[in-house]
Amino acid sequence: MSQPVVQLRDIRKTYRNGDLEVHAVRGISLDIQPGEFVAIMGASGSGKSTLMNTLGCLDRPTSGSYHLDGVDVSGLDREARADLRNQKLGFVFQGFNLLARTSALENVELPMLYAPQRPARAAMKSRALAALAIVGLADRSDHLPSQLSGGQQQRVAIARALVNQPRLLLADEPTGNLDSRTSIEVMGVFQSLNEQGITLVMVTHELDVASYCKRILVVRDGLVVRDEPVANRLIASEQLAKLRSAESAAKLTSVAP
């Protein structure tokens, strides 16, 4: 079996709030293999955000070890973690988090500007355009975020996360600000990326969104309480087709006298 992308061993995170100690994560061990598509679910305060921040190298665990792509990253300093985020991780956020008044192309170029080895200008542009093409927005590269719909903005954010060819794509409630139809579209983008071999981890609290993944982790009180494969996996393209036929049926009935 190949080396896991993520290997967590007894990860703990304790926040100190005055005299009060808050145990956000209380000993999570976890392996994620290449090509997996994992949904992390849990109520607010369950520790799923802390787990996600740890996976994303935004936060350091209080104790335990974290191997990302075979490298121990739990003890790295701020700068090394920044390089790691840039090279091995891609982030998609709930609120899209694109730079305002900045074209889609420049938004996608941003991670390359912070890369330890910055590509040449032309290479940056062609890579950014390729990433936009993957999410189906090659023709919108010069649009500003304000000129794009929510789903399109999120796809630009996905292109930005992909542009440095990360080992792991992390999505924090990526459909939280989207309507159900756009949510399915975005999940469709994730599913096709996953089919191309990209490893994905996503936080969500919606079960039907999690159903598009392959594996569901349920976190409660800082522990993984359930870890199982998705039983009835939804396929985004099928769901969209269903939605379309339902819509046209509704139209037919409304048009009929």
């Binding site: 920044a82 390089d83 840039n86 982030f91 730079l99 991670p111 912070y114």
Partner: peptide, 16 residues
């Protein structure tokens, strides 16, 4: 602040 957060998240160093 949010913009700075994005930049830091996608790999900007403090120095950058």
């Amino acid at each position: 602040t949010r913009e700075i957060g994005i930049r830091l998240a996608i790999g900007a160093h403090d120095r950058d």
